[in-house]
Design a protein around this nucleic acid. Structure first.
Lengths: 206, 206
DNA sequence: GATAATACAGACCATCAGGTATGTATGGCC
DNA sequence: GGCCATACATACCTGATGGTCTGTATTATC
């Protein structure tokens, strides 16, 4: 799809640049508060490019959520937390990894999909649905390790691997909300500590 | 401040009606996506009334967050979960109560403060701060019971009553996000189940 | 090498948004 | 009973916003 030029080797990259700009700007300001012009300025492209690639602003929202799902998917797939041989250790390593990627700037580590879902779940269901796919898709990548850990230790206590996988995302999303409310990334660390403690207790691996 | 009239006994109620409308409409659509005109229409008042009571839209946001903190504060204060004599039972009753007030309509039981914080933490810090006061203020009301439960059972394990109190709000806020992302209130129930299980494990009260 | 499709650029437009300015009815107060 | 503050109502203004339209450079294709 990209078709670079001799004069302008960046040609063909407008769509990607818009998606990257959306990722950054929307995480700061939210979807509704972000204008198309602002997105174009941040991406360094014109309005013509925007509406060439996206039917309307909502389509950009859907594409941004999908883009988020794809890029974070690749990012987590290549992350080192898959290395431990023991599945429970992999789950705990996931939490440690999530902790490690939290920095000082809220907009850099919070979740675009969560932000989009919160804002558009009713007014723009297509965007909300795309955000949902990103969140639940990521949660699903944890399921196998959790299930393996349960099997390895013979755990079964009224909860499922899928539900615990989703709960990890609940804690993360909630941590982001509290972090924003308190202007303090530490909130996420705190709740991840509780999550880790919970999982260790569940698996009796003190 | 209200000054009712013979002709119009509703006179004086415009501010409250606007805050109630804000509570409902913003939980559906978000803050930025909600226009002043829409708020006025929902409240059944005119724009003149709006800008008489609020300096600008941001001031309405702050007032709505404060209003949320006050009304929910009174609501939870009068709730029956304070009745058990044992402090741990009160904490567990709080979770059960939160579960019980979840209905079918997302906008009816989700948290205005969480929505506002997510959207305005950077673009309108005054609103974000007000939302933060509501959230952390509510969390603080749980602290005493948690601390009492810890003392009663001699618990001390690298975490504080304040941090566990905040964690309950993390799980709720995250549950709301997942519920919106999945268009399914059940997500909140699921995570509250995990939260309850965690607290029982912490206090060894299976 | 003509054709067609892609990937933009940039001017333009209608609407709507937040906000203001002004007018008016009511009731407290002296 | 005159004055003033409060609590609105209504008309209006201005800039921003989403979206369109037309033009143009580039490249694949035949």
């Amino acid at each position: 799809m990209p078709r670079p030029t001799k004069q302008d080797p960046e040609r063909g990259a407008a769509r990607t640049r818009l998606l990257e700009a959306a990722r950054d700007v929307i995480r700061r300001q939210g979807f509704a508060a972000t204008s198309v012009d602002q997105l174009c300025a941040a991406a360094g492209v014109t309005k013509g490019a925007f509406f060439h690639h996206f039917k309307d602003k909502a389509a950009l929202g859907v594409a941004a959520a999908d883009f988020w799902g794809e890029t974070t998917g690749a990012f987590f797939e290549g992350a080192p937390y898959h290395r431990p041989a023991d599945p429970l250790e992999r789950v705990l390593a996931y939490i440690a990894f999530r902790r490690s990627i939290i920095g000082d700037e809220l907009f850099e580590f919070t979740c675009l999909a969560g932000t989009l879902a919160q804002e558009t779940y009713e007014s723009a269901p297509e965007i909300g649905a795309a955000a949902g796919r990103a969140i639940f898709g990521h949660a699903a990548t944890l399921e196998a390790d959790i299930a393996a850990a349960m099997a390895a230790r013979g755990i079964s206590g009224g909860w499922t691997a899928a539900s615990l996988a989703r709960h990890t995302q609940t804690v993360l999303q909630g941590g982001f909300v509290l972090a924003k409310a308190g202007q303090d990334p530490q909130m996420v660390h705190e709740s991840l500590d509780h999550l880790e403690r919970y999982i260790r207790l569940l698996f009796q691996a003190a």
